[in-house]
Simulated assay, not measured.
Amino acid sequence: MWTMFVNGIVALLGHLAAGLDGSYGLAVIALALAVRLALLPMTLHAAEQGWLRQRRLATLKPQLERLREHHAKNPAAHAAAMQSLYREHGITSGLGSGLLTALVQAPMSAGIYAAIRQGMTSMGSFLWIPKLARPDLWLALSVAMLGMAAMLLNPMLPEQARTLLHWLPVAISFFMVWHVAAGLGLYWLGSGSVTVLQNLLLRQRVRRLPA
């Protein structure tokens, strides 16, 4: 089943490349954009729910602090009191929509990665990249810049929370793309551009919500 899925994506990439003047680079980016845009309503909804949960938790911070002090010597009672407060204010665990999104994205991304790796020998060049089967420094920098833009546009990350720890995913994405084939890096590039779009849309949505 998995082999058939991957082979189907390989065939799809071939058809896309044939329709894009033989460019596998454009085919990979087009596939990344198509997949992420198809999932955008789901991922945007999950992100909005996460932002709402974060805002509700922020309003409950004084009450949560009082509960922590009141039940300092009884962790079980503290946990029960927190859950009761969450239920009272309609705050869920936040795993539902996020988990569903991950379950949909994970096999799709894994299949596309496998398909790109399988077809890399026939991918050739793209723009400044001489061989899509080899890593490319400038592509890695481009992916990292997109990740930085997505992080800065994310309304769930307040200014005061933008510590070195939050920059770590940007650095990790740079080193990962720098050490994998450029064909895979192009998928990250296309996917990252939709993440930037998602965070822009999320910022617009949260601005319209009542304070």
Rank of each mutant, 00 (worst) to 15 (best):
R55C: 00
L157P: 02
L103E: 07
M151Q: 10
M151Y: 12
I172C: 01
I116N: 03
L57S: 09
L189F: 11
M156K: 13
G14V: 07
Y24H: 14
K61V: 05
E159W: 10
L57E: 02
S142H: 07
L39G: 04
Q204Y: 12
Y187V: 11
S193L: 15
L40K: 01
G124K: 03
P107K: 08
L95Y: 06
A46H: 05
M82N: 00
R162T: 05
M176A: 14
V206F: 11
L60N: 04
A102T: 15
S97T: 11
W51S: 01
L152M: 13
H166L: 15
L52A: 12
F126M: 13
A114R: 05
V104N: 05
F174N: 03
T121N: 14
Q118D: 09
S109N: 08
L39H: 00
P210G: 03
A79T: 10
M120P: 05
A149R: 09
G185F: 08
G147N: 12
L33I: 14
A140Y: 06
S142W: 10
A58V: 03
Q118H: 04
L146F: 05
L31W: 02
A81S: 03
F174T: 00
V170K: 04
A149E: 04
P158A: 08
A102L: 14
H71N: 00
A144W: 05
M176Q: 14
L31Q: 04
G119M: 08
A149D: 00
L153T: 06
A79M: 07
G8P: 06
A81I: 01
S125E: 13
N154F: 01
A149Y: 06
A18S: 12
V206M: 12
R207K: 15
G90Q: 05
L103R: 01
I29R: 03
A77K: 02
I116K: 09
R203F: 03
M120G: 13
H179N: 15
L189V: 07
A115Q: 02
L13S: 07
L52C: 09
Q63V: 02
L100Q: 10
M82L: 06
L132M: 10
T59D: 07
M4P: 08
V206Y: 08
N199S: 08
F174R: 02
P62T: 04
R134K: 14
L141T: 12
L44T: 05
G183K: 03
L64R: 03
R203Q: 14
K73T: 02
V180R: 07
A58S: 11
L12S: 14
R134V: 12
S142L: 12
K61S: 12
S109D: 05
L31R: 06
R36G: 11
A77E: 03
L57P: 06
R56H: 04
T43H: 04
L168M: 15
W138I: 15
A34W: 12
M145F: 11
M42F: 07
Q83W: 06
P130C: 13
G147K: 01
